[in-house]
Design a protein around this nucleic acid. Structure first.
Lengths: 131, 131, 131, 131
DNA sequence: GTGGTCTAGACCACG
DNA sequence: GTGGTCTAGACCACC
């Protein structure tokens, strides 16, 4: 799986990495049980610090995406889903609100916004089918 | 206009304030030509630092939402919209992507996600009609 | 609140700190809403690294004991309890099992073990009453 | 005797193995004089490294649970108990404290905690009776 | 001042 | 080799 880090971006490195790994899991590109590269390996490949990678792995572990393994390193965890609690939906709404307000301010129509979301969603779904 | 600041939030105070003011302008709740409260007044009302309010006004002014008057203070500037560049759409997609990926991981269906967005969007549109 | 760190111990520093802070919260010595010292302050006081303190705070935050605050620093979070899920009880049993097995091997009677636990429990309860 | 190793666990493999062997000895499931499987056999059965098994046996030998025989391999050593020093009791209290504090924070009552411990204790005692 | 992030080293236990 | 922990610096945005 190809991972790219933009050192210029204002988005923290560990978040860039996290987002891409989650996407890999979502699309199935990183299948359940598949091992991820070790801290050292990945940090060397990306040219960033070990701790930054570890921080990412720690968060993914805490959120249930990964399991850390003394022998095999980090492996992808199945059994996501069924975590879509009301609490999550609430949090999501709060997170989306500012973007929607901004889009509205910029004169974007509801239909266009929906189209963008659908496009992103379908990207993931297609990725999953192609596994 | 009611403004609420969440000191617990990880969103910077000035951004919370900015978003709400922009929303007010977008919905028309803050009409063109209407003066905004002074730094001192607003910062006291919200219980935050004057500098934080000033920073918000500065940005809004710089983005064309406000005009500063020596006597009237800050007044709302009309003529928004028509700023929806391709660049903005691209940025928006990048910002939305992680939330959509996460929702997808948590098993949320596209329809449910769209429904949430539509609900948020319609809140804004209704606000505009009721002015 | 007095916090002591044993640099000689094989227990990680951040865990020593975490345990003591949780205990402080449990006994009510750190009351809801009370601010904790900043990273820099506490790390300087204890003579350990800032990141080690931050790591502790991060975990306590993630477990719901704390809320991080841009202005006030870290503050104690109320509304614990009601988190005693079946999952937690199961985890607890797994964590306790080895200690009980060991005690049993060393010839400790059930009554003595229970007595030790009760003593520890009552320490906390008394601490709470005395607030 | 059934031994299970959890590769996911954060508990070192050699400790998992050691705990279970001690438990077997404590309950009498592994009777005095009974030979244990060879390194090679046990490591193959459990799917772990031979060195890990050896490390476990070494420690058990050093703690007096086993005796190594050039021909018979490792054999169980009787005469346990009577090792419950004050030092051990102190250590145990320190180890249990964090779990009890956490349980207390989560709203667990003393009675429920005691019940859990008793249940675990009785499991061991019954194991012993049934031999 | 605060927290948030990142780096470049280091040592340890485990396997 | 792996992950787990720790240190001593640094820069940034926010308040």
């Amino acid at each position: 799986m190809l991972i790219t880090i933009d050192l210029q971006s204002e988005i923290p490195l560990y978040l860039q990495l996290k987002t891409q790994l989650i996407k890999g899991i979502a699309t199935g590109e990183l299948a359940e049980g598949e091992p991820l590269p070790s801290f050292r390996q990945l940090s060397a490949d990306l040219g960033i610090n070990m701790l930054t990678v570890k921080k990412t792995y720690d968060q993914l572990k805490q959120e249930g995406y990964l399991t850390m393994h003394r022998q095999k390193g980090a492996v992808v965890n199945g059994q996501l889903h069924a975590r879509m609690t009301d609490q999550y939906v609430l949090t999501l709404k709060q997170q989306l609100a500012p973007f929607i307000t901004e889009a509205f301010c910029y004169g974007m129509k509801k239909a266009q916004f929906t189209a963008i979301c659908n496009a992103l969603y379908e990207e993931l779904e297609e990725g999953k089918e192609n596994d």
